[in-house]
Amino acid sequence: MPFLDRLQHWAALQPDANAVTIGADRLSYAELQVRSSRRARELAGESSGGPTVLCLPNGLDFVVDFVAAVAGVGTVAVLDPDWPALQRTAIERMLR
């Protein structure tokens, strides 16, 4: 995947450069690559065969999980964590 190839490229070329900055939080390219690779392995063990469903607030954890999901199954459904639980559950059921 071009996105993941670019992440690996920048992680090798400028490992300490900022890849993501959200407020005062930051991840370098190397940190993003390591954390997302680790998380991709975890998500692979949790896979139900459908898209990876993410329902997280904006932040570094969301970025890591999104990159991991793209690296894994490649299909990601992003749900709004502010939606009512019944709505999220119904959508997750449809996605599976």
Rank of each mutant, 00 (worst) to 15 (best):
M1T: 14
P2G: 14
P2V: 14
P2A: 13
F3R: 10
L4F: 01
D5K: 07
D5N: 11
R6A: 10
L7E: 02
Q8W: 13
H9L: 04
H9F: 08
W10A: 07
A11E: 08
A11V: 09
A12Y: 00
L13C: 14
D16V: 00
D16I: 04
N18Y: 02
N18R: 10
N18E: 14
N18M: 09
N18K: 03
N18S: 12
A19S: 02
V20A: 02
T21F: 02
T21M: 07
T21E: 15
I22W: 05
G23S: 07
G23D: 09
G23H: 09
A24S: 12
A24M: 11
A24L: 12
R26S: 13
R26V: 08
R26K: 06
R26H: 08
L27A: 01
L27W: 00
L27R: 00
L27F: 01
S28H: 09
Y29T: 06
Y29S: 07
A30F: 02
A30S: 11
A30M: 06
E31I: 06
E31W: 04
Q33P: 08
V34L: 13
V34Y: 09
V34D: 15
V34E: 08
R35T: 04
R35Q: 13
S36T: 11
S36W: 02
S37W: 14
R38Q: 13
R39E: 11
R41V: 10
R41C: 08
E42W: 15
E42K: 12
L43G: 02
A44Y: 04
A44Q: 12
G45C: 05
E46D: 14
S47H: 09
S47R: 13
S48C: 06
S48A: 11
G50A: 03
P51Q: 00
P51A: 08
P51M: 00
T52G: 06
V53P: 06
V53K: 01
C55E: 05
C55A: 01
P57C: 04
P57F: 03
N58G: 02
N58S: 12
G59A: 01
G59S: 03
G59N: 02
D61H: 10
D61K: 05
D61W: 00
F62C: 08
V63K: 03
V64K: 00
V64C: 06
V64Y: 01
D65N: 14
F66A: 13
F66M: 15
V67P: 01
A68M: 09
V70Q: 12
V73T: 12
G74T: 07
G74L: 08
T75Q: 10
T75W: 06
T75H: 12
V76D: 04
V76T: 04
A77C: 07
A77G: 01
A77V: 03
V78I: 05
L79K: 01
L79R: 05
D80T: 08
P81H: 05
P81M: 07
D82R: 10
D82V: 11
A85W: 07
Q87A: 15
R88D: 06
A90Q: 10
I91H: 04
E92L: 13
R93Q: 14
R93F: 14
M94S: 13
M94H: 15
M94L: 15
R96N: 15
